[in-house]
Design a protein around this nucleic acid. Sequence first.
DNA 1: TAGATTGTTAATCGATTAACAATC
DNA 2: TAGATTGTTAATCGATTAACAATC
Lengths: 204, 204
Amino acid sequence: MTRDIPEISLQRLPVYLNYLKSLSGEENKFISSGAIAAALGMGEVLVRKDLAYTSSAGRPKVGYVRAELIAALEEYLGCNVKKNAVLVGVGGLGRALMSYGGFVNYGIEIVEAYDSDPAKEGMVIAGKKVCSADEFERGMAVYSPRLAIIAVPASAAQSVCDMLVAAGIKGILNFAPVQLKAPESVAVRNIDVAANLAIISSMI
Amino acid sequence: MTRDIPEISLQRLPVYLNYLKSLSGEENKFISSGAIAAALGMGEVLVRKDLAYTSSAGRPKVGYVRAELIAALEEYLGCNVKKNAVLVGVGGLGRALMSYGGFVNYGIEIVEAYDSDPAKEGMVIAGKKVCSADEFERGMAVYSPRLAIIAVPASAAQSVCDMLVAAGIKGILNFAPVQLKAPESVAVRNIDVAANLAIISSMI
DNA sequence: TAGATTGTTAATCGATTAACAATC
DNA sequence: TAGATTGTTAATCGATTAACAATC
C-alpha cells in the first residue's frame, strides 16, 4: 500500500465509514458532503477532500451514493482483504481484544496470542489459542501475519517489539505506555488509554 | 482548567512524562530537550515549546532537572488531584478497564460501573461494584465523578452519552465506534481500536 | 572564557477553509 | 432553466522548524 494520503485524513476515513454504515439504507440512498459534515461536526470541504482520496466520485446536485461511498471506503481501507494479526500479552486487555468483534469490519482477524505466563499456555479464548512466547516463530510461519498488537506491561513492550520486528511484522498497535523504537519500515501506533482519560481531565 | 495549550501539545505531555519516568533516577539527574527529542524521535524545539507550557524552566548548558520536570508535568496534568470516573458497559473491554492499573498514575480511579445486563449486577471486579443502569444517579450523588468511560456497543453509545451529559459528566472517553453528539462544554475523545489497527494496515 | 543549551522570534510547512467555476 | 452540490484553486490558519540572542 503506502499511498498519497495525509495520515490525518486516513484517520478520518473510518469515522466516515462508521457514520455512513449507521444510516438506514432505505432513506439514505444519497448523501451530500454537507450532510456528513454537519453530522460529524466538521467542514464540508474537508469531507469532500478526504473522500476524494478514495476516488469515489460524487455528483453535483445529488451528492454521493451512500452504498458506493461505503464500498469505496472499505476498498480503500482494505476491509475486503483478509489480514491476520497476532496478539502478545494476554492480560485483561489482551483477552478483551481477542473477544472483540470490531476487527472483522476491517478484514482483520487475531489468529493467535502469546504470553510468557505458562499458566496461560493452552487456553483458548474466543476460539483462538494462547501460546507460549517461543511458539511465536511457528505462528509466523503458519499465519504469515503482518500486523501485531502489543498488550504487555510497559517493561516488556520494547523487547516484544524487537521480537516482532525481527520476525517480519510490519505494523504494530501498541497499548503499552512506552514510545517504541522500531525501523521506519514498521508502522507503529500507540493507544495509551490512561493518558487519553488524563487529557480529557485536563481539558475540562 | 481549560488552559492555553494546543490540544496536540497536550497530547504529547503524557509521552514526555512516561519517558522521563522510565529513566533511572541516579544517572539522569539532568536531561536536555535534545536528548528527549532524540529518544522520542521528534524535534528538540518542539520539545522545549511543549515543556514550556508546564512552566517548568530548563537551564542553559545544563538542561532540565528530570525530577522537577516530572513534577511539573504531573502537576500540569493534574495527576496529584484525585478524580473519580465511572464506567458504563461491563463487557470484555469494560472489565479490562476496571482492572487496569494505569489510571492511578494520573490520579484517576474508576469508582463504579454500570451495565444493563441484570446478570452482571452485583459483580465486583477489581474491588469495584457493577450496578444496574438505574443506580447511576445514586452513583453520581455519592462519587461526584466528572469523567466517564463508555464501553457499550455502538448502538447504545449515544443514549448512554445523553444520560451521562444530563447527569453532569464533563468528560467522556468513548470506545464505541460512533461519533457522539454532546454539548461543547463536554469534552469527548474517541478510541476506536479496530480503526486504529485498520489504519496501520493501510499504511504498510 | 568558551561552549552547550535554553527560550523566543521569524520562516516554513502542511492542513483547513473560503471562493468559485463546473455540472447535473 | 435555476439551484444545489461537487471538485479545485487560492487564501488563511496553525503547527513545526530554523535561526539566533541570552545565559549559565
